[in-house]
Design a protein around this nucleic acid. Sequence first.
DNA 1: GTCAAGAAGATTGTTGACAATAATACAAAG
DNA 2: CTTTGTATTATTGTCAACAATCTTCTTGAC
Lengths: 252, 252
Amino acid sequence: MATAASSIPPSTILPSDLSAWPVGASPLTQSLPEQIATRLSERIVSGTYTPGQRIMEQAVAFEFEVSRGPVREALRLLEKDGLVIILARRGAQVTNPTIAEVNEIFDIRAMLNGLRDRTIAENPQREQLLPALEQGIKQLAQTAADPGPGDEYIDIVLKLNRLLTQAVGNRRLQTILGSLAVQTVRYTRLGLLTPQRRQQSAQNWQRLLRSISDGDGDEAERIARQRVSDSRDAAIEQLLRQKAAADAKASA
Amino acid sequence: MATAASSIPPSTILPSDLSAWPVGASPLTQSLPEQIATRLSERIVSGTYTPGQRIMEQAVAFEFEVSRGPVREALRLLEKDGLVIILARRGAQVTNPTIAEVNEIFDIRAMLNGLRDRTIAENPQREQLLPALEQGIKQLAQTAADPGPGDEYIDIVLKLNRLLTQAVGNRRLQTILGSLAVQTVRYTRLGLLTPQRRQQSAQNWQRLLRSISDGDGDEAERIARQRVSDSRDAAIEQLLRQKAAADAKASA
DNA sequence: GTCAAGAAGATTGTTGACAATAATACAAAG
DNA sequence: CTTTGTATTATTGTCAACAATCTTCTTGAC
């Protein structure tokens, strides 16, 4: 029944607009499968569900007090974002990407972020974006210098990326970038963000702002690729530690 | 029951490996939803289902002699590839992209094809690819000069693209490019491929071959983007005619 | 004649049960 | 002790029916 939807509390860990689904023409209320997918994606991104872990329809359905139908659809949605892999007659399990695969995702992100930022820099109406961008980047510089607790820094970066991704009208690009972002945030959250890396990242954002304001598409694309490349390094390190920990646990 | 699957004849219009789904570790037999999705995608790509047309679960289920469950999943698969759009409680309808949206898809294809061809050109093991590539490009040159009937030319181009896409190990890139290819083939099939365009395309492929064999990634990327850009022009023209025809029919 | 409100019909969303298949445990043979 | 075959269990795949919602048609008022 539709009222069962209310038994699923709203998302708390991830801001719901981070995820890929309700990108355009979103209804005010997520559908039941979407709600389930959101909840499950939080667990995968946060590590509650570990890489390789099986997710069984029955168990999820029981926990959320719905039938297996919506759960199946939710798992298909997660598959679309690469958070789970579904094998025929063997169900879903949390993806456990290799280093090479994560690198590949970053390759694509670098390309498409480049396309995105170039498009924005060459858009005559880019002026409207500048105030919000400036404000975010200012915040970023402050947080880079003074770390503070938690993931505040990453949240700001995500917000900036969201801002830019939504600014380009290209809906398919939004979808793809959203999906790729969901996958990589698994490894940048809690990542090894050293002060130097934060500083460099903040500087890159500042350079990006200038290139956009100047309307220099070439430069914007170059910087975007550089930025993704930098975050890749941090993510790979993080992933390596994660895998090492998992191996140690497995052999114990 | 599983035997109902046999009531759905295999794909005929599109070679099944064109579609995005069974990319890696594919089971020998497609699942029921996949079979339905393949069949429906053929109708959309071939124009049997016109842009904007509603696809109703009941009707499809009845025609294929299955229940609505698998049909629902099939429609979700098609949505992933951008062939239909699903609105909550309003069902699926064949996408009817604007010129701008098709342009956006080609923007992304240009970028990612560039990434793909660069990756291949810079791969030390690229030698293995060259014979098959050469053979395909030779075929292409012949067909470009001597058109022949049907879509033979386009089929060769698709084959070449498939060859390259599968050559890069990057599975996610494969998925995305496959999805984008499915969408654009709606407008390149039966497209306005003038002899000049075919000639130029064949030449570009030849240049690409050389850059790969030389290991020149920069050049490979540049050519790839050019190639997509050219095919974009033909597709947009085709789409314009299609829309004009639809408008004329609507007002009649 | 046009527009609004309501009723009837059509269509999607969800559910629980059944069927088919894969994973597991166990026993027997080499 | 390992391996192979078999029985059991667990899990996914499919179905048909019900509930909720949207669409369309009719009716009535202005």
